[in-house]
């Protein structure tokens, strides 16, 4: 147990030390990290502050996916390895592919279950399918 953890630690140290990361690439990775985390923070603030489920969904599914995607690309660039960069890009593509699908499914289910729009919403063009007892 002790020797294994030591081996893992020395592996991490070696991969950190043997990294010939140039200053330009470090700047790019740092900018991507800061941008991605700020996008995630903005998504969380929007999730907290918007008045309605359907408006909150905008923040969570757009800014949130862009934030985590930028952080993934930063990790892929930092690795200095084509395969790992490709893996990170595949993860970003997967997030971009699945975030709208899950948001659409959730919005449709909530609308179907009778979740109402906030009163400041202008219009709701989707017909309500299963109406309540008095509607």
């Amino acid at each position: 147990m002790g020797r294994e953890s030591l081996a893992v630690e020395s592996f991490a140290m070696e991969s950190l030390a043997s990294e010939p990361l140039g200053m330009g690439l470090a700047v790019v990775v740092a900018v991507l990290l800061v941008l991605g985390s700020l996008f995630s923070l903005l998504a969380a603030v929007g999730l907290l502050r918007f008045p309605d489920l359907y408006t909150r969904m905008h923040a969570a599914s757009k800014a949130g996916s862009v934030g985590s995607g930028l952080l993934l690309i930063a990790a892929g660039l930092h690795a200095l390895d084509g395969a790992i960069l490709l893996r990170a890009l595949a993860g970003f593509f997967f997030i971009l592919l699945t975030a709208p699908i899950s948001a659409h499914l959730l919005a449709k289910a909530a609308h179907h279950a009778g979740q109402r729009l906030h009163p400041i919403s202008v219009t709701d063009q989707m017909p309500r399918e299963r109406v309540g007892p008095k509607d």
Binding site: A43, A44, L47, A60, S61, G67, L71, A88, G91, I95
Partner: peptide, 15 residues
Amino acid sequence: LGLDMLVAIAIGFIA
């Protein structure tokens, strides 16, 4: 929706 956002932030954290 909050759970979905939590997973997205956790992905960023792992990166």
